[in-house]
Design a protein around this nucleic acid. Structure first.
Length: 280
DNA sequence: CAAACTCCCTGTTAGC
DNA sequence: TGCTAACAGGGAGTTT
């Protein structure tokens, strides 16, 4: 499940291979992958565009494309891609047989292809003149736009929700998914159901530091091995995620438990992560 | 406003 | 062995 560190890793790998390449032709094999515009217009507008920038915002991949047709006005196009659960990208030499779950392919001008493969078909592709249309709904990117400690405290206190739900909410902070929320809460010894407006300044400061630490470590390791066989991003192993029944690596007193929070499997140490008492 | 539920999907796994 | 049902989950949308 690609979250911020995995998407960052993908961006870094793709950037040198894509910058300067021109798209010759686009193919979409699963229509619902393309969120906007319609297929005909997508193919027409993306053809002869050159990759000018490869970045990300939250979990969105953001490709800035420069149209090459001299006849057209040459304002940038933005191709946005959200990998959701099972999406992945690869660059292969052209002419190879299509893989089973390939949903879209861009033919490039150097005998290679950019392929989007997505088993579960949840991924979404956009081509937009103004990417703020989509990315404008995102909260600050956890790494690229890290909020100040004060801002973080105030925003947590502006809401009255369970911590985990809020950290998963991309309009609150962008980039965290199920794994890194569980890991960040464990590291900061906070309970996923603690209310966001009950945290002290010390706690919100610590939480912010832990989020940054967890994400940067994962980026350093090119992602996290969730142990689900879907993604193998190296040797960065989670401390609690997917480790139900195993001893907490910090206190070594209690086994990790799994609860459900907002329909998401949630892993925590019942000893380290006590739910904070309600303040009177 | 917050929480709960539904939908989109398919590979994996538990249960019979 | 072979089948079916449950499950996983990001995010948008709907209902309570």
């Amino acid at each position: 499940m690609p979250e911020l560190p995995e998407v960052e890793t993908i961006v870094r790998a793709l950037r040198p291979k894509l910058i300067g390449r021109t798209i010759c032709c686009a193919h979409v094999f699963w229509p619902r992958t393309l969120a906007a515009p319609q297929l005909n217009e997508f193919k027409k507008r993306i053809q002869n565009c050159k990759f000018a920038e490869v970045t990300r915002l939250g979990k969105f991949l953001v490709f800035r494309l420069q149209p090459q047709d001299k006849s057209k006005a040459s304002s940038s196009e933005f191709m946005l891609l959200h990998l959701r659960m099972s999406g992945s990208l690869s660059i292969v030499r052209s002419g190879l047989a299509r893989e089973t779950h390939d949903r879209a392919i861009l033919d490039l001008d150097n005998q290679t292809e950019l392929r989007f493969n997505d088993i579960r078909k949840f991924g979404k592709l956009y081509l937009l003149k103004d990417h703020r249309q989509i990315t404008g709904k995102l909260g600050p990117d956890a790494i690229l736009q890290t909020p100040s400690a004060e801002e973080f405290f105030l925003r947590l206190h502006a809401r009255k929700v369970g911590l985990k739900s809020l950290l998963l909410n991309q309009s609150f902070i962008a980039g965290l998914g199920n794994i890194y929320v569980d890991e960040s809460l464990w590291m900061s010894k906070l309970h996923p159901l603690s209310r966001s407006d009950h945290l002290t300044r010390a706690q919100t400061n610590l939480l912010l530091q832990c989020i940054i630490k967890v994400l940067k470590r994962a980026i350093r390791f090119s992602g996290t091995d969730a142990g689900d066989g879907v993604v193998d991003f190296g040797r960065n192993k989670p401390k609690v995620y997917g480790r139900e029944g195993l001893y907490c690596p910090r206190c070594k007193q209690r086994a990790i438990v799994r609860i459900v929070v907002g329909q998401r499997g949630t892993h925590l140490c019942p000893d380290c992560q006590k739910k904070s008492r309600k303040r009177k």
